[in-house]
Simulated scan of single mutants.
Amino acid sequence: MTISKPVFDRLGFWLWVGSFLVVLGLVLWSPNTRSVVHIYRHGSEAFLSSQPLYQVEVAMGYLYAPAFAVLYVPLLKLGPYLGDFLWHALGFGVLTFAAMRQVRKVGGQEPIWLLSFGLFLALPVSLAALRNGQATILLAGACWFLTLSALEGRRAESFFWASLAIIAKPTAIIMLLLAGALRPRLIPVLALAVLVVLAIPYGFASTDYINAQYHDFFRMLTSMAVDPTGPFVPADFTAPFTRLGMTLPELDATIVRFVAGLLTLWVVLQFDRRLDANVSGLAIFLVAAFYMCVFNPRVEQNTYAMVAVPAGLSIALLWREKRAGTMRWLLAALLFATGLTSIDGRLHDLFHPWFRPISISIIALVLIGWFLTRGSEKMPAAGSVAHG
């Protein structure tokens, strides 16, 4: 046992790293195969030539803030091989180190096993997004770092990670709003991060051009809605209804998103108040990532990579609970199997896009309930003095 245990402790971690090394090999072999990075290159090329970035009518193609086009220019200049290599490595590195920081904060027994098992469970759901080079990976890592930095009251770190998250994807504003609600003293820092990101493009192009891009950018953001006739197939909570031919009206979907947002805020505040400070960051980011995947109207199947790693680490944490024998097995199996629904074309056609919002919702809601129960067990009894 003294020989085999370290191997199994690290098996999941090395599978995570090894799979990514295979991804890097595929990127170097064929940069444009199964990749969305060409969209980022196109955005930077359009920015450098002062061409329109957005297709507002179809809301497809380049969907990022103008600052993304600016900051991707150095990678564009490095070419499709080295540039894509560094882009993939950036997203993977940020997400992996965020998970490692979270595990160090959780502490407890066998932290290496906790990280390894969590990454192993998350790998199938995450692998396609890692292969495609999607900004979702960078978004997940930046938002996770922002969560931890905000809870610790680190202003400079919060500013940096908030800026990077907004650049990665505009949906990061959800995490900034939650961070501001958790730590109101950071609101000026978070607002400054948004202003800096908005201001970055003005240093590299004419004011008239940037103003026109922001006009199209905000028009595009406000026009995104549930449209089964359009080219985009959403994989959010509306997908199961769409699969059954029951398209939800836009107003009804908006009401559901709003109510879910209020519930998310309430749960996050409860976690911050009730849970141990070493665990609250994981629980809070899990809830935020769940909302950003299931209730974001611009969700596709690979977006669920954002919630995969926090869900995997949460299940690994749950694994320590002896009372949760059956539940932990079911959650682990469901998360791992969810990522396997696209390994074959026939399976993909059968499960896309309705299955992931259902399976991830089941996993997240069970874990949220477990975190709430865990928090209530640590609350002081009625009539006791909470702070001595």
Rank of each mutant, 00 (worst) to 15 (best):
R10K: 13
W14C: 13
G18M: 08
V23A: 07
L24I: 11
L28P: 05
H38F: 13
Y40D: 09
G43F: 06
G43I: 08
S44Q: 08
S44D: 06
S50N: 14
Q51V: 07
E57F: 08
E57K: 13
V58I: 11
G61R: 10
F68M: 15
V73F: 14
P74W: 13
P74C: 13
P74E: 15
L75Q: 02
L76N: 04
K77S: 10
Y81R: 08
F85V: 06
H88T: 05
H88V: 06
A89G: 03
L90S: 07
F92Y: 13
R104F: 07
R104N: 10
K105G: 08
Q109C: 09
P111V: 07
P111Q: 11
L114Q: 02
L114K: 01
S116F: 03
F120E: 08
F120V: 06
A122F: 14
A122R: 02
P124S: 12
A128E: 14
R131F: 10
N132K: 13
N132S: 12
Q134D: 14
L138P: 01
L138N: 04
A140N: 04
A142K: 01
A142Q: 05
C143S: 15
R154L: 13
F159S: 07
F160K: 03
W161I: 09
K169N: 13
P170Y: 03
I173L: 15
L176K: 02
L177C: 11
L177M: 12
G180C: 13
L182Y: 05
A191H: 05
A191N: 05
A191I: 14
A193C: 09
A193P: 05
V196H: 03
I200N: 07
Y209L: 10
I210P: 00
N211Y: 04
Y214D: 12
F217S: 02
F217R: 07
L221A: 08
V233G: 04
F237H: 04
F241L: 15
R243N: 09
V256G: 01
V259R: 01
A260G: 04
L265D: 02
W266F: 11
L269V: 05
D276H: 02
V279K: 00
I284V: 12
Y291W: 10
Y291A: 02
C293I: 05
V294H: 00
F295P: 01
N296T: 04
V299H: 09
V299R: 02
Y304S: 07
Y304N: 06
Y304D: 07
R320D: 01
E321N: 14
M327F: 00
R328P: 00
L330I: 02
L331Q: 00
A332Y: 03
L334I: 02
L340D: 06
L340R: 01
H348Q: 15
L350A: 09
H352A: 15
W354L: 13
R356F: 08
R356N: 10
P357Y: 05
S359F: 05
I360E: 10
L365C: 11
L365Q: 04
R374V: 06
R374I: 02
S384F: 05
A386T: 14
